[in-house]
Amino acid sequence: MMKPTKAAARALLYGIMVFYALTIIMPLIIMLSTSFKSNAEIFNNPFGLPEKFNFDAYTSLFVISNYGRYFLNSIGVTVISLAVAVTVSALASYAISKYQFKYNKAIYVFFVLGLFIPIKLGTVDIMLTMLNLKIFDTLWALIIVYIAMAIPLSVFILYDYIRMIPDELSSAARIDGCSEPGIFGRIIVPLVKPGLAAAGIISFIPNWNEFWFPLVLIKSREHFTIPLATGQLFGQFDTKLNLVFAVLSLASVPVIIIYLLLSNYFVKGLSAGAVKG
């Protein structure tokens, strides 16, 4: 038998949790359910779920507003920049975590310092550089910036993963005459796959959601990414509310799905960082 005070504490705890869960879920439910309502229904029935699921908003976004293009742009930019960032970060992390030389600690600190540097403050120069390189208003401008942005976190994560790999395997391979890059490719990479996945997945979110750089660096509609399209179209659809909510749902649903599928990577990766930091 629980004591009455204990039972009351339990009830309070569950009460707080239900309230907290609702504050998280409700705004998202409102967003999704409104996107399936007709405009009349939004005013007449603001709280309830849609009477019938109306996909008009989504069809018109893809047919009229070229949303497929924006999705492809976002996917292309994200995939290329993450692939490059994780690859170069893995190479660097290997060199500084497995070889003892004069500057390995200093180089690690140099990379990780980037976690605390707001790259946004260099945007004036980035914009002028992209103009000079003649890639202003192209997706390449975004790709380069996003690679740079993802390197500090990737090195931070991969350094630990690679350091944990026991040295015996590499030593044995070395005795068998395997070259140093060969050791990286044949021994380290297969063993550090979970680390590569973690770095890619954790960097995916800020990369996919990034709005500032496309706002400054992208002008042509055909180069819009999803966040930029969200920012620009939101105002234009002022009177068509279901379209507005559909725009927001399209921007969020991919990350929500990825998070729900892979949440362990986030929770583990980030909490490790908190404790270590």
């Binding site: 907290y20 998280i24 969200t230 990350v255 729900l260 929770v267």
Partner: peptide
């Protein structure tokens, strides 16, 4: 609850 609490962080600030 721990999983759910992190969900909003994954959305874009803009959204």
């Amino acid at each position: 609850m721990r999983k759910l609490s992190f969900l909003p962080t994954t959305l874009s600030v803009l959204v």
